[in-house]
Design a protein around this nucleic acid. Structure first.
Length: 934
RNA sequence: UGGCGCGUAGCUCAGUGGGAGAGCACCACCUUGACACGGUGGGGGUCGUAGGUUCAAUCCCUAUCGCGCCAACCA
């Protein structure tokens, strides 16, 4: 126990608490669950090992930590498995940048990885990973993430690398991995192949060049048109330099304009190559001139077209970003230069008829944002369709459910049109492809380990050269749910925690990651990798723009944590994590939840103060013999109404919080907690509890103290998954705590720990719901609010006391008021609350209250400025009149009477009567008032 | 071109077939023994626009405008 400071100061305890949890093994899962115990597991979406925490990480890890802490408190054997991703291109690029700064090569250029050589460069990158790789994990700890660090994995760990090789070899043996020459996306800057997903289409302003291709016959003789001039085809393009690789021109077979050209040829401008005119219904007659230049080696659609028509593929754009020798006079030029030159030369030769401005999409490398070019290259591919089919079925049959459900549509859309996955990358940082080529017989061998000799010709191992390429980073990520649990070994962890319970991630990586995990999981484990996919929204800045370094609108979660604490940030993210909407993070909101943490802080302080105050009065309150919960169970009926009320409200809170957690509607849970703790517990319960604490009846004081302590206990437990630090710190200050253990910890012989995070999550006692108490407190609130409103409207200071008289129609209401007298007096600060005998006195104001149905009267003499009160009454009458008008309109419609549900009609009638009565009272009061002033 | 989402108070967002809610901001009053990171009261919205269904629509349907995202074979 340590004394609580004056206010919530997160910096004073967050780090220490995390360390305590971590060191006492609170985050650790057990390889086996206890019989009857559920297992719950989530694998972290592995952040880039050299990355830094951004708001997206903060969101995903907050959500996961909330779910994990909740399930752990529920008693599940809970595993949240941490780890990082080697992030091939990104990490390699960072190290390359670093060495470039360090020195020059003998040629005077900045150092590149080639100057170091592969082995040294990879060693260097490992070192970089060791030096910088811990940052992100430290940051996750600052957020409070209850990850089982003993199981931390890295995608290039020995074990995970073995899993990668195993998968590669098996897929190869099954014919699902092949090597082939295909058109792929190539980033000339990163010098590697990219998958379709790694190329981001972006709109760019460009030009639409209309080029002239002259028509010739099969012998190369010019074809004359009707006007005697040579026939020509005008073709529009956005990429004129690709004409160097054109091997055909295509028109639509039914395009009448070109029917007479079928079977003819054209002369390729600049190069003079004669190429055929082909027909294909792929061509859009309406677009441009309706004629299309076909460059099979540098355009995906043209590639398909070329395959269909057996066209030659002429590669003119090289991997180095320069035109190849096939480009004739343009060879050696950079692509951009070649474009300029080609356009210039076409113009000179009169073959450029028109240039228009044109906005079109260009594929950019996801990593470096340079233009990626389609080129033909020999790469490794995964034949994806056989893997996709069962993955589609898994979602169709509901074995895997997406939340929000709309994302399933997106998933299907992509999966139905999926293309083979190019998995080889011309990088050094990553899993080198386990394939060897024999220097003497050229045989290709795919194996888990380097073969001792060539299986083909028996040549020695030294003759074998391993494929230089590495695998796409996402290849190893796809195995994450089972590779991290020890696969391909048969481990207990795998048995216990696979399939994982929930996958929580951003929708932006459905294709990159989620879909591929589903495919690999089903294929290699015969079982889906998770049953639920929860996709959170994107975190944006206040203006709704994507946060990015270049825009400078990044809100750094760590700065927020330093300023306000991890808990306010977590609560903000949880409260805003509604489904299907982007999260616009505002710092104001975080500050608001900091105030909330402070509010809870002070509520606990209030308990301490009351406990001490009783002690000073000579009343030592100890924990009840059988524990608080039992004590309340046995003595609840004897408690004060406000105690029974708050207990009842707590019981309603528990399912509200838990329901939100179950449905992934964390905002619902957060809102319920916020509303309860501030506007019920603090605003009303604590205020009401001051009565017994100040009173002489120590029995009542103790009853309220126990109820207060119990309610705090439940509230702190419910809040703990959301705001773990402050709840733990507060809990540690409280008396009568229990050391706690989870079943697996106990089974594994680990000592129980004095921590909130392992206490049982509150269970509902439906019997403690107390409608009568709720009604009674609602009545107190109704009266108190009416009086406060009267004060506010008339500007009467809180110190000024006055008497309150009431007139109730029902005896039941009178009884209720009689019971609540003290509470109303205390909270409304009135000197008396008594039954009004006869009619209203001449100077009495009228305050109608709808619940409880009473009329309050206050003697205005010496209290109120007559004009102000007149104004208040007029306003009130106006409002009531408006209400009457509305209800009357409704009731005067015959169709409403006839078709609306009878209870509703009845309700409206009753309301009309009540409103009429209210108006009469108010008007009478106004009349008295005018007499008084007149 | 198709798919998805959004449009509610000055701002950020909840929400529902029966007269619109929260937080922040704003105004007034209050240094009341948990809390000024506080308390009390108040002002503020024809729920994007137009139709339709219904006794009743902010909510359901249709159209339309605006914004955003995603997927695309329009060179």
């Amino acid at each position: 126990m340590r004394p609580l400071g004056k206010s919530y100061e997160p910096a004073e305890f967050e780090r220490e608490l995390y360390q305590v949890w971590d060191e006492s093994g609170c985050f650790e899962a057990s390889d086996e669950s206890v019989p009857g115990q559920k297992s719950f597991s989530i694998v972290i979406p592995p952040p880039n090992v050299t990355g830094v925490l951004h708001m997206g990480h903060a969101l995903t890890n907050t959500i996961q930590d909330i779910l994990v802490r909740w399930r752990r408190m529920k008693g599940d054997n809970t595993l949240w498995l941490p780890g990082t991703d080697h992030a091939g291109i990104a990490t390699q690029a960072q190290v390359e940048k670093q060495i470039a700064k360090e020195g020059k090569s003998p040629s005077g250029k900045p150092l590149t990885r080639h100057d170091l050589g592969r082995e040294a460069f990879v060693a260097r990158t490992w070192k970089w990973k060791e030096d910088h790789g811990r940052e992100i994990t430290h940051q996750l700890k600052r957020l409070g993430s209850s990850l089982d660090w003993k199981r931390e994995r890295f995608t290039m760990d020995e074990g995970l690398s073995a899993a990668v090789r195993e998968v590669f070899v098996r897929l190869y043996e099954e014919g699902l991995i092949y090597r082939g020459e295909r058109i792929i996306n190539w980033c000339p800057r990163c010098q590697t192949a990219l998958s379709d997903l790694e190329v981001i289409p972006k709109e760019r302003k460009g030009n639409f060049w209309h080029l002239v291709y002259k028509v010739v016959d099969e012998n190369g003789k010019p074809v004359k048109g009707a006007d005697g001039n040579q026939e020509q085809l005008v073709i529009a393009t956005t990429r004129p330099e690709t004409l160097l690789g054109d091997t055909a021109v295509a028109v639509h077979p039914e395009d009448e304009r070109y029917r007479h050209l079928h079977g003819k040829k054209v002369v390729l401008p600049l190069l003079g190559r004669v190429i055929p005119i082909i027909t294909d219904s792929y061509v859009d007659k309406e677009f441009g001139s309706g004629a299309l230049k076909v460059t099979p080696a540098h355009d995906f659609n043209d590639y398909d077209l070329g395959k269909r028509h057996n066209l030659p593929m002429v590669s003119v754009m090289g991997k180095d970003g320069r035109i190849t020798p096939a480009g004739g006079p343009y060879a050696g030029m950079k692509f951009a230069e070649a474009r300029e030159q080609v356009v210039l030369n076409l113009r000179e030769q009169g073959l450029l008829v028109k240039t228009e401005d044109h906005v079109h999409k260009v594929g950019l490398c996801q990593r470096c944002e340079n233009v990626a070019e389609p080129i033909i290259s020999k790469q490794w591919f995964v034949k994806i369709e056989p893997l996709a089919k069962p993955a589609i079925a898994a979602v169709e049959t509901g074995k895997i459910q997406f939340s929000p459900k709309n994302w399933e549509k997106t998933y299907f859309e992509w999966m139905y049109n999926i293309r083979d996955w190019c998995i080889s990358r011309q990088l050094w940082w990553g899993h080198q492809i386990p394939a060897w080529y024999c220097g003497s017989c050229q045989e290709l061998t795919v194996a888990r380990e380097k073969p001792a000799k060539c299986p083909g010709c028996g040549a020695r191992a030294s003759e074998l050269r391993q494929d230089e390429d590495v695998l796409d980073t996402w290849f190893s990520s796809a195995l994450w749910p089972f590779s991290t649990l020890g696969w391909p070994e048969k481990t207990k962890a795998l048995e216990t925690f696979y399939p994982t319970s929930i996958l929580e991630t951003g929708f932006d990586i459905i294709f990159f990651w989620v879909a591929r995990m589903i495919m690999m999981g089903i294929h290699f484990r015969d079982e889906v990798p998770f049953h639920k996919v929860y996709l959170h929204a994107m975190v944006r800045d206040e203006k709704g723009e994507k946060m990015s370094k270049s825009k400078g609108n990044v809100i750094d979660p760590l700065v927020l944590i330093e300023q306000h604490g991890a808990d306010p940030l977590r609560f903000t993210l949880a409260a805003m994590a509604g489904q299907g909407r982007d999260i616009k993070l505002s710092v104001d909101r975080v500050e608001g939840y900091r105030a909330y943490c402070n509010k809870i802080w002070n509520a606990v302080k209030f308990f301490h103060l009351q406990l001490d105050a009783l002690k000073e009065k000579g009343i030592e309150v100890a924990e009840p013999a059988g524990g608080l919960e039992n004590w309340i169970g046995e003595n609840r009926a004897k408690l004060d109404v406000h105690d029974r009320w708050i207990l009842s409200r707590v019981e309603r809170l528990i399912p509200a919080v838990e329901g939100g957690l179950e449905r992934f509607e964390l905002n619902e849970s957060a809102q319920a907690l916020y509303e309860f703790s501030w506007h019920e517990f603090c605003d009303w319960y604590i205020e009401l509890s001051k009565l017994p604490f100040r009173g002489a009846d120590s029995g009542k004081a103790i009853g309220t103290l126990y109820t207060l302590r119990y309610t705090l206990e439940v509230l702190l437990r419910l809040l703990h998954p959301f705001i773990p630090f402050v709840t733990e710190e507060l809990w540690r200050s409280l008396p009568w705590r229990k050391a706690a253990n989870t079943p697996t910890r106990a089974r594994d012989g680990k000592p129980a720990v004095m921590t909130l995070m392992l206490q049982e999550f509150p269970r509902q006692h439906a019997a403690w719901i107390d409608e009568a108490a709720e009604k009674e407190i609602a009545a107190v609130r109704g009266l108190v609010e009416a009086v406060r409103n009267f004060r506010g409207e008339n500007n009467i200071a809180p110190r000024v006391e006055f008497a309150l008289r009431y007139k109730a129609a029902a005896a039941e209401t009178e009884a209720l008021l009689a019971r609540s007298t003290e509470q109303v007096r205390s909270l409304a600060r009135v000197s008396a609350l008594e039954r009004a005998a006869g009619a209203g006195g001449a100077t009495e104001a009228v305050l109608p209250v709808s619940y409880p149905p009473v009329e309050l009267r206050i003697d205005l003499k010496g209290l109120v400025n007559i004009e102000e009160e007149t104004r208040r009454l007029r306003k009130e009458i106006e409002k009531v009149a408006g209400d009457i008008q509305f209800v009357s309109n409704k009731l005067s419609q015959e169709t409403f009477i006839a078709k609306a549900p009878p209870q509703l009609v009845e309700k409206e009638r009753k309301r009309q009567q009540e409103l009429e009565a209210k108006r009469q009272e108010l008007e009478a009061a106004l009349a008295r008032l005018s007499k008084l002033s007149g």
